[in-house]
């Protein structure tokens, strides 16, 4: 791992996810009882929506109080002391990771378990995942992995429906 930047991200292999919500539970208890991971609630599937840790994060750009910020390792985080729960980041996030429901908790935000990652461990959600659906890997390697093969089984007419 480069000391300047955390290259890896949390990747979800939808063809392995059994919707057990263990990731949400691990994240909750690892972040002092803050509900950070929530779940897509469609008729077909309930998979976790985990922060993509964008390199140019819209949540940071939209925050009027600099509560959302990106640190030197490119991890976007929230400073609870500065957050006024205005909801700008919720509206700014194009991926639905931050939700209105989180406002009452001053928008808890995935920090990629930065302290653990710097110790050489993986984020809690990845380590707890009992099905192996969550991985901590470099985004560029995804296309070279089996994920692509399994991913082709995700059918087209509904992006969240599997078979």
């Amino acid at each position: 791992m480069s000391p300047e930047i955390i290259q890896k991200r949390v990747i979800l292999d939808m063809d392995l996810c059994v919707e057990c919500k263990s990731c949400g539970s691990a994240c909750f208890y690892g972040h002092k009882n803050q509900p950070i991971i929530h779940y897509a609630d469609t008729e077909n599937v309930k998979v976790p929506i985990i922060c993509r840790q964008c390199l140019k994060p819209a949540c940071v750009d939209s925050c009027p109080n600099d509560a959302m910020h990106q640190d030197e390792l490119t991890v976007s985080k929230r400073s609870p002391e500065k957050c006024t729960a205005c909801g700008s980041c919720v509206r700014g996030c194009p991926f639905g990771v931050l939700t209105d429901e989180m406002i009452r908790h001053n928008v808890p935000k995935c920090d990629l378990c930065e302290a653990r990652v710097l110790e050489g461990k993986e984020p809690r959600c990845v380590e707890t995942c009992p099905s192996g659906a969550l991985r901590f890997g470099e985004v560029g390697s995804v296309q070279e992995s089996k994920l692509l093969l399994l991913g082709t089984r995700t059918i087209g007419h509904h992006p969240l429906k599997r078979r």
């Binding site: 057990c20 263990s22 539970s25 691990a26 909750f28 208890y29 809690r124 380590e127 707890t128 009992p130």
Partner: peptide, 26 residues
Amino acid sequence: YLEPDYRKDVPELRRGVCSRGNMTAD
């Protein structure tokens, strides 16, 4: 604080803890 953690010294197919296991410290 007590926090559940995850073992690397066990068979790979038995790694990970479900949502209930994560509640042990709670």
